[in-house]
Computed example of a mutant assay.
Amino acid sequence: MKKNGMINRELAAVLARMGHTDQLTIADCGLPIPEGVPCIDLSYKLGKPGFTEILFELLKDFEAEKVYIAEEMKAENIEIYEEMERVGSPFTEVSHEELKELSKQSKVIIRTGEATPYANCILQSGVIF
């Protein structure tokens, strides 16, 4: 049995397969899942698990060199936006429509139960050396 890090077997497997510049999306419960992109659905009730809970746990085991968020987040979800500033990686603001288009390139979408507007991000994999 795994002792440390991500214990969810699907998430651990995805993280192990990520290479430099590969992307993954962490989504609220309303983001459309593009056809053909695998989805790991962690939601179990409205609001649970939360977006930031999953984001910061994932970042303990994942090197993100860049983060994409919807520019609408700043006006419509300031609480999550302020949490995004703690990520420690540069983030790029794009329109929500652009974020949905970019999510089509993700290796996986991790769906949370988050039920607040624009609580989505795309993490681009960095390297650890």
Score class of each variant (00 low, 15 high):
residue 30 G to C: 11
residue 30 G to F: 15
residue 30 G to E: 02
residue 30 G to M: 12
residue 31 L to Y: 12
residue 31 L to H: 12
residue 33 I to M: 03
residue 34 P to R: 09
residue 34 P to D: 03
residue 34 P to T: 02
residue 34 P to C: 02
residue 35 E to N: 07
residue 35 E to K: 00
residue 35 E to V: 08
residue 36 G to H: 11
residue 36 G to M: 00
residue 37 V to M: 00
residue 38 P to R: 02
residue 38 P to M: 09
residue 38 P to G: 04
residue 38 P to Y: 01
residue 38 P to T: 08
residue 39 C to G: 06
residue 39 C to L: 02
residue 40 I to A: 04
residue 40 I to S: 05
residue 40 I to K: 06
residue 41 D to I: 05
residue 41 D to C: 00
residue 42 L to T: 09
residue 42 L to S: 07
residue 42 L to G: 09
residue 44 Y to M: 06
residue 44 Y to N: 01
residue 44 Y to L: 06
residue 45 K to D: 03
residue 45 K to F: 08
residue 45 K to N: 00
residue 45 K to P: 08
residue 45 K to I: 07
residue 46 L to Q: 09
residue 47 G to C: 09
residue 47 G to S: 04
residue 47 G to R: 05
residue 48 K to T: 03
residue 49 P to D: 06
residue 49 P to W: 05
residue 49 P to G: 07
residue 50 G to A: 07
residue 50 G to C: 02
residue 51 F to I: 05
residue 51 F to Q: 05
residue 52 T to W: 04
residue 52 T to I: 13
residue 53 E to G: 02
residue 54 I to Q: 01
residue 54 I to N: 00
residue 56 F to I: 04
residue 58 L to G: 14
residue 58 L to Q: 03
residue 58 L to P: 10
residue 59 L to F: 14
residue 60 K to R: 00
residue 60 K to V: 09
residue 60 K to D: 08
residue 60 K to S: 01
residue 61 D to G: 11
residue 62 F to S: 01
residue 62 F to Q: 02
residue 62 F to A: 09
residue 62 F to D: 09
residue 63 E to Q: 13
residue 63 E to F: 13
residue 64 A to D: 13
residue 64 A to L: 04
residue 65 E to V: 12
residue 66 K to D: 07
residue 66 K to R: 13
residue 66 K to C: 15
residue 67 V to R: 14
residue 67 V to S: 10
residue 68 Y to Q: 04
residue 68 Y to L: 11
residue 70 A to C: 12
residue 70 A to Y: 06
residue 72 E to R: 10
residue 73 M to F: 12
residue 73 M to T: 12
residue 74 K to S: 15
residue 75 A to K: 02
residue 76 E to K: 13
residue 76 E to G: 05
residue 76 E to I: 10
residue 76 E to F: 09
residue 77 N to G: 08
residue 77 N to I: 07
residue 77 N to D: 04
residue 77 N to R: 00
residue 77 N to V: 02
residue 77 N to F: 02
residue 78 I to D: 07
residue 78 I to G: 03
residue 79 E to A: 10
residue 80 I to K: 06
residue 80 I to T: 03
residue 80 I to A: 02
residue 80 I to S: 03
residue 81 Y to G: 05
residue 81 Y to L: 11
residue 83 E to V: 10
residue 83 E to S: 03
residue 84 M to E: 03
residue 85 E to C: 13
residue 85 E to A: 12
residue 86 R to H: 13
residue 86 R to G: 11
residue 86 R to T: 15
residue 87 V to G: 09
residue 87 V to C: 05
residue 88 G to F: 14
residue 89 S to G: 09
residue 89 S to T: 07
residue 89 S to D: 00
residue 91 F to I: 09
residue 91 F to M: 14
residue 93 E to V: 07
residue 94 V to I: 15
residue 95 S to R: 08
residue 96 H to W: 06
residue 97 E to P: 13
residue 97 E to R: 02
residue 98 E to M: 00
residue 98 E to Q: 05
residue 98 E to A: 10
residue 98 E to G: 06
residue 99 L to R: 08
residue 100 K to F: 15
residue 101 E to S: 13
residue 102 L to S: 14
residue 102 L to V: 13
